[in-house]
Design a protein around this nucleic acid. Structure first.
Lengths: 345, 345
DNA sequence: CTGAAAGCGCTTACAG
DNA sequence: CTGAAAGCGCTTACAG
């Protein structure tokens, strides 16, 4: 029992367990951490006392005392985006066997929120940080990251080097890939549909590479984008309506992601437009969304598991003070579905 | 500079800032927390020093010193399940304005993992706990929860009372609803397809209520389930293959969730079975998955936002020591799509 | 094999 | 308006 009653003090302490087992707190600490040499008998007594008191180590105090942490913080744009939730699962699974826990935050592609989240992460002195790229990083964010010198790896944006390690696909390559698909198919007039490109730098990079490659080949290009439409099926449907209302002669559309592409196809179907005969459609992501009842989207796929694993491994290496490859570009795979007509090779 | 050099000590401390601003650590603490009365001049000096040193409060120490935390821990079965990621987002958003942060863990419906996660949560002495129901809770989990007396609310399983507050839909009502839909439609032979019912108690409850209601009306019932098939489109497709291979005369199927239902419809389509004319299909969840290109699933929907908000509000009330409604059942809404034929009322 | 001392970086409760 | 003391619950580095 402590002399002063402080509010909220919950749960048994090392001292409580020690008292019950008739040993010093120090001995309890050693038994529980399986450190040092303690006699079998004492160990048993301590363990029993700990269990019966429902003792749970106060990690706050452990971390503070040992200046180490078992928490890895992960910042992603959105937890409900299947890409990031898959990467996240893979990170957690890779870290778990090493007794490292994952703490997740969302930035919503907002640089100010990113800063606040990073600050918040740093305030619990994590073992490492995994930040998703593609968000405009504020100078003060870099600054604070620097000053704390935590093990930090960046994921998702394979084109931009940043921090000690950078792991992800090349969005430039992905955009170019899609453009080449339409070029090979012989289309002359192609559109892009996406949302929030001002905030999502990776998507912007894909869109840009897509447009450039098309223009270089003299192909007509139209962009239908918005900064506020949801990046879901609904958003894809709305922007597709807009495209069909305002433009004619478009033969193919590349969407920001698979969800929007499916929404777009739904609209086309409702307006009696045949996919892929009258309109060819492609997405990006290759998650489970790429497969609908009759539609198998033409899209770009990659191993999100690999990205998560590589990120987790890298952050652990950095935390141990080891060197790590600064740039680890993940391969993008083109998937031919039935939403475009396969070009004869 | 500390006397002993301890490893990993990162970032400036209150003392560092104090030295730079020529005041005591105590004064810095007060300025940073905007507590007590400190002269304008001192405040400015301190703020400048803090910014230039990149000072970030060590929350571990703060929590330990004040015996309070700004972290709410949330345990869900799976972060990649759209239902739980939506509830989670809603919880985070509700908590954020109150400067509370969300820490997420996954149980994968595994009672042992649930115990480990709860232990792990408790070890950082959170402000509150939000646990998802539907997982077989181990006695030792209840025990440890009890002994720590943290503010705990349970979500998702509206049928079972547990802890101080329980928020979620009634899965019994949902299962019955679906059965009644098939009964009204006049079907005589109905199936259920699902996976991992041994671990997911909520799904099991829905399935049971579904079966019972059908049987009570003398309707033929078949269950095609598995404990290891993924609860995604693919899993739904596989089990549907099995159903079509092994059984005849089935006129309608209720799936565990929308994703599996869509996978099932895909298989039916591939085998030339017309939905809903030859086979009526229903799902559960009503997430964005319920809408495919041509298919609008008949399903059960509810407000995941409401569940998240209610959970967040309740956990905050409990943390403040206020009373909270022990049982808050959320309403389930039947959604008539085009995957079943609407019964004439 | 066991434990007393000092420290981690903060906060609470006072004193001036 | 400002600060010295004691404590949060642990760990490190020693001493016995």
């Amino acid at each position: 029992m402590s002399k002063t009653t402080r509010p909220g003090s919950r749960g048994a302490t090392l001292a409580d367990v020690g008292r019950a087992a008739n040993v010093s707190p120090m001995t309890v600490s050693k038994v529980l951490r399986k450190t040092g040499r303690i006699s079998e008998k004492t160990q048993e007594r301590v363990m029993q006392a700990a269990v019966s008191l429902g003792y749970v180590n106060n990690q706050l105090a452990s971390f503070l005392g040992s200046a180490t942490s078992d928490i890895v913080c992960v910042l992603i744009p959105s937890a409900s985006d299947s890409v990031f939730s898959e990467i996240l699962s893979s990170i957690s699974e890779t870290l778990r066997p090493f007794d490292l826990r994952t703490f997740v935050g969302e930035s919503n592609f907002n640089p100010e929120i990113e800063f606040e989240q990073v600050r918040s992460f740093l305030s619990i002195r994590p073992a490492g940080l995994i930040l998703s790229g593609g968000v405009k990083r504020l100078a003060k964010t870099d600054d604070i990251l620097d000053k704390h010198g935590s093990a930090t790896v960046q994921i998702w944006d394979g084109d931009t080097r940043s921090g000690a390690a950078n792991i992800g696909p090349s969005h430039k390559v992905a955009g170019r890939m899609m453009a080449e698909h339409f070029i090979k198919a012989g289309l002359k007039n192609v559109a892009y549909i996406g949302s929030e490109l001002g905030a999502d730098l990776c998507a912007a990079q894909r869109a840009q590479a897509f447009e450039r490659t098309l223009r270089r080949h003299g192909i007509g290009f139209t962009a239908i984008t918005s900064e506020c439409v949801p990046r879901q099926a609904k958003g894809g449907a709305w922007l597709t309506e807009q495209m069909l209302d305002d433009h004619t002669g478009i033969e193919g559309v590349h969407f920001l992601n698979d969800a929007m592409a499916l929404g777009g196809i739904r609209t086309m179907y409702q307006r009696g437009l045949n996919v892929p005969d009258q309109m060819q459609v492609t997405g990006f992501n290759g998650t489970s969304l790429a497969t609908s009842v009759r539609t198998q989207l033409t899209t770009i796929n990659m191993s999100y598991t690999d990205i998560g694993e590589a990120a987790a491994q890298s952050v652990m290496s950095l935390a141990r003070g080891e060197a790590v490859a600064a740039s680890q570009v993940q391969e993008s795979c083109f998937v031919q579905g039935n939403s475009t007509i396969a070009p004869q090779s």
